[in-house]
């Protein structure tokens, strides 16, 4: 395409600015959906949440593969059979993986330079559950730079009266000493 022709196009192209939309210069349709759901948790997750309210973590064992599944499940997805007994597990564990997040969960940037602590989400393999079985949670009250793979951590629970049967009944995990 020759330059002359390109310039002609540039002249006719109009870029859209925010005020064109908000000022009603451009006609748009908008809609705010009212979508509400109430999911049945089923026996496994219901018990898990009820135990969290009591300040305990519970899993379920599959007697065939001998794994303790956490969070508990009514069936073993690998062995394809119903799971067996309920098993209480510890509230301590080992960091499987983590990151230092400078954005919140809607991808909004955190004001790190202004003193906001980065989020430090982590997957924690819980003591008493099988290797690789753990919960997604977060680590707090420690310098993000000090978090390491394989670090030992322990749950910090909300006070009993504030717990509501949610994974946020654990406020965060904090570093502890090495496993004995």
């Amino acid at each position: 395409m020759d330059i002359k022709h390109q310039k002609k196009i540039d002249k006719t192209v109009t870029s859209l600015r925010k005020k064109d939309v908000t000022g009603g210069k451009v006609v748009t349709e908008s809609w705010e959906p009212n979508l509400e759901y109430a999911w049945d948790n089923g026996p496994a997750i219901s018990r898990y949440l009820a135990e969290l309210k009591k300040g305990k973590l519970i899993g379920k064992r599959c007697n065939k593969c001998d794994r303790v599944l956490l969070p508990p499940r009514m069936f073993c997805e690998i062995c394809w059979r119903p799971t067996d007994e309920w098993v209480y597990v510890e509230d301590t564990g080992t960091v499987n993986t983590f990151c230092i997040s400078h954005v919140d969960w809607k991808a909004g940037r955190l004001n790190i330079k202004g003193g906001v602590r980065p989020f430090t989400p982590a997957v924690i393999e819980i003591d008493g559950a099988s290797k690789g079985m753990g919960i997604l949670h977060m680590i707090d009250k420690t310098n993000p730079k000090n978090i390491k793979m394989g670090m030992r951590v322990k749950a910090v629970w909300k006070p009993a009266e504030k717990r509501e049967g949610s994974i946020t009944d654990i406020e965060y995990f904090k570093p502890i000493g090495k496993k004995k």
């Binding site: 999911w39 049945d40 948790n41 089923g42 026996p43 496994a44 499940r73 009514m74 069936f75 394809w80």
Partner: peptide, 18 residues
Amino acid sequence: TPDVSYRELTYEAATKAY
């Protein structure tokens, strides 16, 4: 079906089908 989650609902049908 307040007694089961969507997971257990499908699991029951799948177990019977297999």
